[in-house]
Amino acid sequence: MHRETITVIKVRGVLMVTMPADPDDATISALQEKTLEAMEEYEARGLILDLSRVDTLDSYFARTVTETGKMVNLMGGQTIIAGMRPAVAITATQLGLNLAFIRTALGVDQALDLMSEEHPV
């Protein structure tokens, strides 16, 4: 029912997803499924996950983001999370969000720069 809340768009070979302010579990699962489907369909260079609207982060969200980063990496893409707010970042350290396969950027602009620098078309 809630799957419509996630929209994956493709811009110049990069997937972009903007998370809503307070995503529920269904939205979070939809994020992973839709992203991976789109990775396959478009053979995208990677995923930019815009978190600038998000103001709450729970352990399920943190785990899903970590996992999705690994999965996207296995499919040959780079995941960049963009625009995480300070308060969410502090929560993220406590929840053990893992950045092993994920890059970060201050905003979507910087994320696009990073993507074209490190994973050119």
């Binding site: 999370i81 963009a82 625009g83 995480m84 707010r85 300070p86 969410v88 970042a89 502090i90 993220a92 350290t93 969000l97 950045l99 970060t104 950027a105 201050l106 905003g107 910087q110 994320a111």
Partner: peptide
């Protein structure tokens, strides 16, 4: 270490 992690999360 935690501070450095948090800074990474916001993208710096």
């Amino acid at each position: 270490v935690e501070t450095i992690k948090a800074v990474r999360f916001v993208g710096a």
